[in-house]
């Protein structure tokens, strides 16, 4: 099974990449840009038959390693 873990920055936590990119877009003339934020996608392949068990494991991986709860949030999506 393949899962997509999407990590995003929590609201209110500084996102210097996003702020800088938003500034660059406005410099290019896109004045309507009010914000940009960065995240990351991580694809995780699992050799597990049970879907519920697999989701539970991926969520646990996010909580232990893949995301830092101080600054990040995550979602988990089953791709195939």
């Amino acid at each position: 099974m393949r899962f997509r873990v999407r990590i995003t920055r929590r609201d209110g936590i500084a996102d210097p990449e996003g702020t800088t990119t938003a500034h660059a877009l406005r410099e290019l003339g896109y004045q309507e840009v009010t914000g940009v934020s960065f995240g990351r996608d991580i694809l995780v392949d699992l050799d597990v038959d049970d879907e519920t068990e697999a989701i539970g494991k991926v969520v646990e991986m996010c909580e232990r390693l893949l995301a830092n709860p101080v600054i990040e949030e995550f979602t988990v999506e089953l791709l195939s």
Binding site: I13, A14, D15, P16, E17, T19, T20, N68, V70, I71
Partner: peptide
């Protein structure tokens, strides 16, 4: 900080 022995986290420097 990642180990939770100190609070907080580090992000990229302002201005990158």
């Amino acid at each position: 900080t990642e180990a939770g022995l100190l609070p907080g986290a580090m992000v990229a420097n302002r201005g990158l």
